[in-house]
Computed example of a mutant assay.
Amino acid sequence: MKHKFQWRRTLTAACIVLASVSGSFGAYANDIKIGVVDTERILAESAPAVRALKKIEKEFLPRDKEIKEMASQAKALQELLEKDGKTMPEADRRNKERDLANLNREYQRAQRQMREDLSLRQNDEVATLQLSASKAIQIIAEAEKYDLILPLRDLVYRSQRMDITDKVIKALADK
């Protein structure tokens, strides 16, 4: 009961403070300039993001080819065992089954390692891009005298004229 009373008292005090401040705040509200930025679009569409994606694809292409080659070897060995396994000598069949099991293990290990390495590289590139984007946003905010710039992802509503994403993407392209 005491807790409810304290909660009401705090809420009432907060309302009184807000009511008294809102009168003086109204005069400053017209001077505040707020912008929003779509970070997901920047990470997907900006020139540095596109370059980073191409760089990573080029970097991981040889490993991807190697893994695909392992998969085709395993498939060929599996098909051979299915086709001729019953007619080949027991020792040959066991050797081929062991080779297939080893190849499958190696394939899974290589795939897992590539996924981990790819994830690390992508995270590095995203971190670099976020840093560049933050600098570009700060430069735009200072040049155009913004008081506040918010990320778009958590907003319920925003006016299109507040969105500076295209300006940030252009600023990053100019670098």
Rank of each mutant, 00 (worst) to 15 (best):
N95D: 10
S132F: 05
A47K: 07
N123G: 08
D163T: 09
V126R: 15
Q138A: 13
A143I: 00
E116M: 09
V126Y: 14
F25L: 14
E57I: 08
E57K: 10
F60N: 02
Q73R: 10
M88V: 06
K135Q: 15
A74D: 11
R115S: 08
T87C: 03
V17Q: 01
L131K: 14
D154W: 07
I137L: 09
L81A: 03
L18H: 10
K96C: 00
A101C: 01
K167E: 09
Y146V: 01
K55C: 06
R158Q: 05
R105E: 13
E90C: 07
E125A: 15
E90I: 06
R105W: 08
T39M: 13
A14R: 00
N104L: 10
I32P: 02
K135H: 13
Q130Y: 13
D147G: 04
A47Q: 06
A74W: 03
Q160Y: 08
V21M: 15
K167W: 05
R115T: 02
N30Y: 07
K167N: 08
A110Y: 07
L131I: 12
L131D: 15
I32N: 03
Q6E: 03
L118M: 04
I67W: 06
S134R: 10
A141M: 00
D64Y: 08
R98L: 12
N123F: 03
Y28K: 14
L81C: 06
E116Q: 11
E106L: 11
T165N: 09
S134E: 12
A110N: 12
N30T: 04
R8K: 14
K175D: 14
E106P: 14
L80T: 08
R41V: 08
N123E: 04
A171T: 13
R98M: 12
K55A: 10
A136P: 01
L100S: 07
K145W: 06
T12S: 01
S20R: 09
D163W: 06
H3S: 00
A110R: 11
L18A: 13
S24H: 10
L11Y: 12
P62Q: 09
A14Q: 02
E40L: 13
Q73K: 09
F60C: 01
A141Q: 00
I34T: 06
N95A: 11
S159Y: 07
V37M: 09
L77D: 09
T12E: 04
D92R: 08
D92F: 02
Q6F: 00
S20W: 11
R105S: 12
K175F: 10
L172F: 12
D166K: 12
W7Q: 11
A136C: 04
G23S: 15
E144C: 03
T128A: 15
K145P: 02
Q113G: 11
Q111S: 14
K65R: 10
